[in-house]
Design a protein around this nucleic acid. Structure first.
Lengths: 129, 129
DNA sequence: ATAAAGCTTACAGTAACTGGAAGGTCAACA
DNA sequence: TGTTGACCTTCCAGTTACTGTAAGCTTTAT
């Protein structure tokens, strides 16, 4: 599996995959004769895991720790528990905000038909609570 | 209202507020004798609006456009409609991912009690779908 | 009165990409 | 078989959105 296929499968750009390797978030990929990187299914799982963490704004350095612990089955996972507790709070807040915004936007997206701001309720409602 | 109060009221750091002024996302704040910035209620609303947009990763330049249009009631709002349509899709995807992750995390956060990775189901489940 | 807390600017640093140049590789088609 | 075009490589520079720090002025509290 070449880098662009991995990119497609994980929804992470090839550029970003190379960047992740560069900063040691990903182990150096195996290379063929050509020098091209080659990946397998396990890499998809890892990268999807990484993407999800990044969507939660977990910094790369923390994701690195999570991945390190996964490789070392005897380590303590107390810090993971703590990290997850912190993330849970943030996720719930994020969901509240998203739900609020989605509700506003969904009901308004189709209502902006007169193409003047005067009659455009989208902006008014976005500004209110 | 001083900058730190605005910061508290909006959950945006004073540093970031000054940055937003610097990049013309916010109009230059009024200053008192001392040179300190002063804000009022309207600034809270604007900044909360900005924060919400940023939480959705709407780039500053786009937020600027939204705010500009708000000030110019005769402008077309077609682009707002389009922007909102785009954001709606992203919000819904983000919500799906968040819901998924929250479910995993919520059920697992308390289950990591033995402090070894071997018996820690959190990591295993994070890696699966 | 003086010390702590909070404000100012300015400049540098950071995180996480992202773009672009210069060049090598590979699959397909005339 | 040649060559075209898509895809790969590295390297270096640029971008976005902050974030930290220093040096100094103002306000508040004891």
């Amino acid at each position: 599996m070449k880098i662009s296929e991995l990119a497609k499968a994980t929804n992470v750009s090839a550029k970003t995959i190379r960047y992740y390797e560069q900063v040691n978030l990903l182990l150096p990929a195996k290379r063929g004769e050509s020098g091209y990187r080659h990946y397998d299914k396990k890499d998809i799982a890892t990268l999807v895991f990484i993407r999800r963490c990044r969507e939660l704004n977990i910094p790369i350095i923390d994701i690195k720790r999570l991945l390190d612990v996964q490789k070392n089955p005897n380590a303590s996972c107390a810090f993971i528990d703590e990290m997850i507790q912190n993330q849970l709070i943030r996720i719930q807040e994020a969901q509240k905000e998203l739900a609020l915004l989605e509700k506003s936007l969904a009901s308004l997206a189709s209502s902006c038909n007169n193409h003047t701001v005067e009659g455009c309720s989208i902006l008014h409602q976005l500004q209110s609570n």
